[in-house]
Design a protein around this nucleic acid. Structure first.
Lengths: 196, 196
DNA sequence: CTTTTTTATTATCTTTTGTTAACGTTTTTG
DNA sequence: CAAAAACGTTAACAAAAGATAATAAAAAAG
C-alpha cells in the first residue's frame, strides 16, 4: 500500500478531525485497494455488506433505478469519499448503485469497521458526527436549490460554483438527471443560453 | 418547568441514545420555555445566537426568502425538534426564518450548550452523530423524491406516507412550496386527481 | 357581527418541459 | 480499422407549469 495514497485519505479525514498516530492506526489495517474498469459497479442495488471508499483516480456516479430507468443523483471525483452512506447507516440493503464512469482506483474499508471505531474512540465518533453534519449540509443546499430555483438557474449555478468539474467531465445526460430534468430539456436550455 | 414537558423532550432524545440521570442533568439547566403567538418568528433570517427547540404545542414552518418571496421548505409539529440546524452547525447567521403557524409553545436550549455537551460527554457526542445522520437521511429521501418524481407523484406520496398531518394542518400554498411548485399548480393537480 | 385578511379555485395566456423519433457525431470496442 | 455503442442536438407535438388576475369562500381580528 503506497504511503501517498494513505496520505490522501488521512488528509481527507483530517479535514474533520486531527488524528494521532495511534488513532490513525486504528483504521489502516482495514484498508484495501479496489480497482474498477470503466462501467464497473462498485456497489450494487440490493447489496448489504458496504464499504466506504476514497476515490484515488477516476470518477463515479451513483444512481437509483426507478421504473427501469437509471436516475443519476450524484458524482464522485478524486480525493472524495464515496459510499452508499445511508444504507451503511441503517444496515439496510443499498437502494443505489455506484458505478465507475472511468477506470478508477479506490482505497476502501468496511463501514462496519468505521462503526466499531465509533465505539472505541471518541475522536472517531466525533469524525462520524462531523461527517454526517457535512453530508447533511450538502443535501440541504441541494434540496433548497431544487425547491427554489428553475432548472435553468440550477444549470447556471453548476457552471459557476465549485462544481465546474461536473460540467467538464461528466456526460450531459447524467448532468440532466442531476438537475432533475431530461437530457433533451438540458440541451434546449443550453441552446437558449447561447452556448453552442 | 413541568415534568411532563421534560419527559417529552427526553423521550425524543432517547430515540437516539439512552441517557443516565447524570447525562440528562447536563442538559436540563439550559432549558427554557418559549411561547409564540400565531405568526410570530422564533428564528429570523440573519440571526446568530441559535437555539434548538422541541415543539410542545402548535406547528411551525421554516422558509427561505428569495427575491422577496418566501419559500417554505419544512414543517414542524408537536414532539419534534426544530432548529436552524445548519446555521447552528456552521456558526453562520441563519439563512432561514422559522415561524409559528399556530400559537405554539417550545422547550428550548442554546445550540452552544449542546455543542459543549459534545465535548464533555461521549454519549452526547453520539447523540449528535445520530441526530445528524437522521437529518441527512431525511434530506436524502426528500432530494431523491424531488429528482425522480413529478410534482403530482410527490403530492400523492404526501397523501399516503407518514406525512398526512401536513395535508390536514398546513395551508395549501405552503404545501405547494414544499413540493416545489406554485399554489396555482397544486390546485390544478388536485382538480386533475378529482379530489374536490 | 362585521370587516379584514388569508386561502383556494378558476380562467387565460405564455413558457417550459416531457415524449418520441430522427439524425449526425464521437467514442469504444472487438 | 470497422462495427457498434454512446452521446448530443433538433423537431414536432402533447402535457404540465409559471404568471397574472379575478372571484369566492373561509378564517381571523376587532
Amino acid at each position: 500500500m503506497e504511503s501517498k495514497d494513505l496520505d490522501v485519505l488521512r488528509t481527507a479525514i483530517q479535514r474533520f478531525v486531527s488524528l494521532s498516530e495511534e488513532e490513525w492506526t486504528m483504521l489502516t489495517p482495514a484498508l484495501q485497494y479496489r480497482d474498477l474498469a470503466r462501467g464497473g459497479d462498485w456497489i450494487r442495488e440490493g447489496q448489504k455488506e458496504l464499504h466506504v471508499g476514497m476515490v484515488l483516480e477516476g470518477n463515479m456516479r451513483h444512481y437509483y433505478t426507478r421504473d427501469g430507468e437509471e436516475k443519476t443523483t450524484y458524482f464522485y471525483f478524486e480525493n472524495h469519499l464515496v459510499s452508499s452512506y445511508f444504507s451503511a447507516i441503517t444496515g439496510k440493503p443499498s437502494e443505489l448503485t455506484i458505478e465507475a464512469l472511468t477506470d478508477s482506483r479506490l482505497l476502501t474499508f468496511p463501514y462496519a469497521h468505521l462503526k466499531s471505531l465509533y465505539d472505541r474512540s471518541p475522536k472517531w465518533e466525533r469524525f462520524g458526527r462531523l461527517l454526517a453534519e457535512y453530508v447533511a449540509m450538502g443535501l440541504e443546499e441541494r434540496m433548497a436549490g431544487l425547491l427554489m430555483m428553475s432548472p435553468e438557474e440550477r444549470y447556471l449555478q453548476l457552471l459557476q460554483g465549485n462544481k465546474q468539474k461536473i460540467i467538464g467531465r461528466i456526460p450531459q445526460h447524467y448532468i440532466a438527471n442531476y438537475l432533475g430534468i431530461t437530457p433533451v430539456s438540458l440541451s434546449r436550455i443550453r441552446k437558449r443560453l447561447g452556448e453552442k
